[in-house]
Computed example of a mutant assay.
Amino acid sequence: MKISEPLSTVVGQGKVPLHLRPDSQRAVLPSQRPTWTGVRNPARQSRKDPRDALLRFEPPLRWSTRRAIRRGFYASEASTRAMMIEVRGLTKIYGRGRGDGTKALDAATFEVPARSIYGFLGPNGAGKTTTIRILATILSPTEGRATVAGHDILDAPLKVQASIGYMPEYPGFYPTMTAEQHLDYWGRFYGMPRADRRRRTKELLDLVGLGAEGGKKLKAYSHGMHKRFGLAQALLHDPPVLILDEPAGGLDPHGIVFFRNLLRQLNREGKTIFLSSHILSEVQQTSTHIGVIHRGRIVSSGTIDAIQSRILGAGTVRILVEAPALSPEVLEGLRAMHDVKDVTRADWGLIVSAGTDIRAEINGYLVQRGVEVRGIKLAEVTLEDAFIALTGGAPT
């Protein structure tokens, strides 16, 4: 008995309704979808499970692409690049055919260095998920270009898909399949031999702490287990780039710490990680670089230290002076110093607000007057401070 089923290609996680010709990387209209025919598994024919036909098929990746994935070609090619993701003038307008449309991205431009953890931040509706879906080749930009691991998202989408592991905010799974069956199933879409699928399945389930739960059906998993399994699925073909949308969303403190340590481990092993998150403190502890998007535009991008220094330099510098015993005359002298805007007393000393970093001048002034200075430093700007300054206090 033969049946016919349209086969959807896979982009990282879940089934994406992007039907491709077997001999082309160009998308086709639903009416032009190719028909794939397979023989139902005789052992399960009586159960009439339509999934049997799909299990017999290779995905619509070119043979050269599948061979390259098996050989790790894209991973080795990407490992020599300085910038793993490059975005230039990316614009996305929804509903252009109905009036002016909605501009979700407005000429966004940024770079993600290789072997970095890049935290992508922004208020709700700023364009984070749209950017991620474009980088994962799920959406096409209205204007602009982007490359991932050296492959253009428009010219070589299948090579981009082979180079990334994509984990959406809400991963989609087949609930009646076990974790082991699920990874084996998706391994076929990447053309992985059976022995490699079995080995990789065991490695990844152990890595994410689900080694003892691999035989359970996914519908029995908790939210935290689904998140960990989603990361395992994204790592299945060992891509050089991970694109994660809210990976720690909805997790308890133990789950957040687990994800943080795991992402750091993967980064040490050479993975480039691009993640969006609303948990600013977690991004600050995990990321090496950040980008802030607001109303579709990138308002800042770089290392966390550089962005914090930029925020400090743009306004008032706060200097913390640890010196308990201070006379009123000394305080008045500090207030009269050049570039000092305000001096506030504290139990442990002073908070001096100034236009520039004048720690040396303050220290010299206090020492000349016999004040015991136990410490003097700049007040740190947290990622939350920087985020509010860059987005104008917009709610997230």
Rank of each mutant, 00 (worst) to 15 (best):
Trp63Gln: 15
Arg310Ile: 01
Met192Arg: 01
Glu269Pro: 12
Thr147Pro: 01
Leu61His: 05
Leu154Arg: 07
Asp152Tyr: 05
Glu77Tyr: 10
Ser31His: 10
Gly101Ser: 10
Ile243Gly: 03
Ile376Phe: 05
Ile293Thr: 03
Arg81Gln: 12
Gly291Val: 05
Gly215Phe: 07
Pro59Gly: 10
Gly172Ile: 12
Thr178Gln: 04
Ile153His: 02
Val241Cys: 14
Ser76Gln: 15
Thr35Ala: 10
Asp305Phe: 11
Arg71Asp: 14
Glu77Gln: 14
Asp347Met: 15
Gly95Ser: 05
Met167Arg: 00
Ala108Met: 08
Ala68Asn: 09
Val112Thr: 02
Arg359Asn: 00
Gly125Arg: 00
Gly127Ile: 06
Ser76Leu: 14
Arg47Val: 12
Leu236Arg: 04
Arg335His: 13
Pro328Asn: 14
Lys159His: 12
Arg81Lys: 10
Gly144Val: 08
Arg40Trp: 12
Gly99Lys: 02
Val343Thr: 03
Ala78Val: 06
Ala389Pro: 01
Leu275Trp: 06
Val28Cys: 15
Val292Tyr: 05
Gly150Ser: 02
Ser8Lys: 12
Pro141Leu: 09
Ser353Leu: 11
Gly302Phe: 03
Ile307Ser: 00
Leu242Cys: 07
Pro60Asp: 12
Tyr166Asp: 07
Ser76Met: 13
Thr37Cys: 13
Thr382Asn: 03
Ile362Ala: 03
Gln368Asp: 11
Phe387Val: 05
Gly150Gln: 00
Ala379Arg: 01
Ser46Pro: 02
Thr344Val: 13
Glu169Met: 07
Val28Trp: 04
Val87His: 02
Ile132Glu: 03
Leu235Ser: 05
Ser116Met: 04
Pro324Lys: 07
Val39Gly: 09
Ile164Ala: 08
Thr356Tyr: 08
Val371Pro: 02
Gly191Phe: 11
His237Val: 10
Arg318Ser: 15
Ala354His: 02
Thr65Ile: 14
Leu20His: 07
Ala386Pro: 02
Gly364Val: 07
Val340Phe: 11
Arg295Phe: 14
Pro42Asp: 03
Pro253Cys: 12
Leu378Cys: 06
Ala179Phe: 09
Leu390Thr: 01
Ile93His: 00
Leu207Lys: 01
Leu266Tyr: 09
Ser79Tyr: 05
Ile304Gln: 04
Ile351Phe: 06
His151Leu: 04
Phe57Ala: 12
Gly393Ser: 05
Ser222Thr: 14
Tyr94Glu: 06
Thr37Tyr: 13
Gly296Leu: 06
Phe110Arg: 02
Gly125Lys: 01
Gly315Ala: 08
